[in-house]
Design a protein around this nucleic acid. Structure first.
Length: 555
RNA sequence: GCGCCUGUAGCUCAGUCGGACAGAGCAACGGACUUCUAAUCCGUCGGUCGCAGGUUCGAAUCCUGCCAGGCGCGCCA
């Protein structure tokens, strides 16, 4: 149900009519808000339009509100009353019966209740994780993975055609370094004494890569000293590591539609193409033996090198080409998800986007870092020394659902504390089980109903007026507002709103469950309550689906 | 030094991009299982929204300046 939208139309029509009749004076429709008030006494919805208009009307807000309210044409069975309150709010109180309609709607839509066509089928690409293939994913990548995946689900629910993409940085010096690291580990494995260099990747996972390599190549594996072979070794290691990354992501419930290789940009000549495009518009220049992009023209603090003195292109050059390529693929909206440690890079990419006139479509979301705790004590995380906690370890220890739920219960721009001990506890301190339990509880009620031979409720044949308790109305309101919660979350690119909505809905259900029985001697009442329970279960499952968290039938 | 993010209850965090007396969970304390699952419920306690100014009918939210924490400031990726 789209109650806000309905009220907005009602008010807009009232304003127009008021203007035509000369009761209201304004030139264009003012921007106003309709919100759900915190206080129940303030109605189901409140509108601030009178306060917004007061100054141009040159009358007190409450007086303006009276005029507007008097001009509203309200059909029967929808609005119970309209009040002017406070500084000039127009408060709307809906008829109880109105909320009950939602149950029929949910039953009719089934699993798709909560989906909308807001996006109008526009194509959007969400690029996320995109971790370098030089080591396993750590917990920070996990947050990005959970967020990106949930965001993609959310946008899909809101009517966008979504594609998930992972960008693989498989070009450049880091691959050479990876190759060197592998060479050292292989020689070490074959008995050579190695003083392992500090600038190499030191994590233990490289020892595993080396072991696999030796197993495949046997004795020939020795004598890996030639610099020429390092690139090949690097590619070998990168491929093996990427396979591990894919596996971790799959076990985390994250599946990509495409894996885009940086090397592909060069194979297709896209980097040179993007240079040509920028050169055409006069935004490239040579200086000090290097090629520069005039990013300072577009808000960056200085110009940036795209091709170095030694002839090698920079990471930035790849990224320009990559985004030009995304643009050419015809997306209406591009979302890049980056770790917050890359935030200094935003202005220069946005500058490039602007130069290539795709800025309006590009959204860069920064996901803040995760600090890992155990029993409230920080866990040391240093990538170079190799003592970091991998996503795999977190998955094994706390499980997919708990990890995802925690990642998705924070705004992306706030740092997150992830306590392993809290996350793996299966108790009240862990809200994921609270929500899942609500779903499982309803499933249990339906099992019970089935075993007693009670028929599944049909909305059309149900006496909905039996749902007259205040607690029931509260649940109905939440269900009715859900589609607009989804739209709002999608519009703001904020999946955590779904998490909070679900926690509240689960709370209302638990409370209701404790006070009242779904199944009773009163067959008519039983049908009505089962229908309500079915609605709650459906919405819980839908929301959990967006988060990528299981909705269990039993726990 | 400059830039970005954050600062809300003892702890972890929401606060619908300016709205009506500031919200939730946990912790603490006190209660509720002969029930469709107690992984639950009910109640109590708890806040100068970092500090100081400003903008207006109205500020946790916007602006300015401080303070504190995190991150970033390469012809690295």
């Amino acid at each position: 149900m789209y109650v806000k939208k309905y009220l907005r139309d009602l008010i807009s029509a009232g304003l127009e009519r008021g203007r035509e009749q000369g009761r209201l004076l304004f030139t264009e429709l003012p921007a106003f808000e309709i919100e759900v008030p915190k206080q129940a006494e303030h109605g189901d919805y409140a509108c601030n339009v009178a306060m917004v208009m007061a100054s141009q009307m040159k009358r007190p807000p409450r007086q303006v509100a009276e005029i507007i309210a008097a001009g509203l044409v309200t059909p029967a069975g929808v609005l119970k009353k309209v009040e002017i309150a406070g500084p000039g709010f127009i408060n709307f109180f809906m008829e109880e019966a109105y909320w009950r309609r939602v149950l029929g709607e949910i039953q009719e839509s089934g699993r798709s209740y909560g989906n909308s066509d807001m996006g109008g089928g526009q194509r959007v690409q969400v690029e996320f994780v995109s971790a370098n293939p030089t080591g396993p994913l750590h917990i920070g990548h996990g947050r990005g993975a959970a967020f990106g995946d949930a965001l993609a689900n959310l946008l899909a629910a809101a009517g966008y055609r979504v594609e998930r993409e992972y960008y693989i940085n498989d070009v450049g010096t880091q691959i050479l370094t990876l190759g060197r690291s592998l060479a050292f580990r292989v020689r070490e494995l074959l008995g050579e004494r190695i003083d392992f260099p500090e600038d190499c990747y030191q994590g233990d996972y490289m020892k595993e890569v080396a072991a696999t390599y030796v197993k495949q190549h046997g004795a020939e594996a020795g004598g890996l000293t030639e610099e020429a072979g390092m690139a090949e070794l690097g590619r070998y290691a990168a491929e093996l590591i990427m396979a591990g990354i894919r596996k971790d992501l799959e076990d985390f419930g994250v599946f990509f539609d495409s894996w885009f290789s940086e090397a592909e940009l060069y194979r297709q000549g896209l980097v040179e193409q993007s240079f040509a495009s920028l050169r055409e518009s006069g935004h490239l220049y040579e200086a000090e033996g290097a090629l520069w992009f005039r990013s300072s023209l577009f808000g960056d603090e200085k110009d940036r090198v795209v091709r170095r003195q030694n002839g090698a292109t920079t990471y930035f050059a790849s990224d320009i080409a990559y985004h030009l390529h995304k643009y050419k693929r015809g997306y209406d909206l591009l979302v890049d998800l980056w770790g917050a440690d890359h935030h200094g890079y935003v202005p220069r990419l946005m500058a490039a986007a602007q130069a290539l006139s795709l800025k309006a479509r590009l959204h860069i979301i920064l996901v803040q870092l995760v600090s890992l705790l155990r029993h409230g004590v920080p866990v040391a995380m240093t990538t170079r020394g190799g003592t970091f906690v991998t996503l795999r370890e977190v998955l094994d220890e706390v499980g997919k659902d708990a990890a995802r739920f925690i990642f998705l219960s924070r705004r992306p721009d706030a740092q997150l504390e992830f306590d392993l001990e809290v996350a793996k506890q299966q108790n009240a301190e862990n809200p994921v089980y609270y929500v899942q339990y609500a779903h499982a509880r309803m499933a249990s009620v339906f099992r019970q109903a089935d075993s007693q031979g009670i028929p599944r409720p049909q909305a059309a044949a149900t006496e909905l007026s039996r749902l007259s308790l205040p607690e029931e109305t509260e649940l109905l309101k939440l269900l009715a507002n859900y589609p607009e919660v989804v739209e709002g979350a999608a519009r703001q690119l904020e999946p955590h709103r779904i998490t909070y909505f679900l926690t509240e809905l689960a709370g209302q259900l638990h409370s209701y469950y404790y006070q009242h029985r779904f199944i009773s001697e009163d067959a008519e009442l039983t049908q009505a309550r089962l229908l309500l329970g079915e609605g709650v279960k459906t919405v819980l499952a839908h929301g959990l689906g967006i988060l990528g968290v299981e909705a269990p039938e039993r726990m």
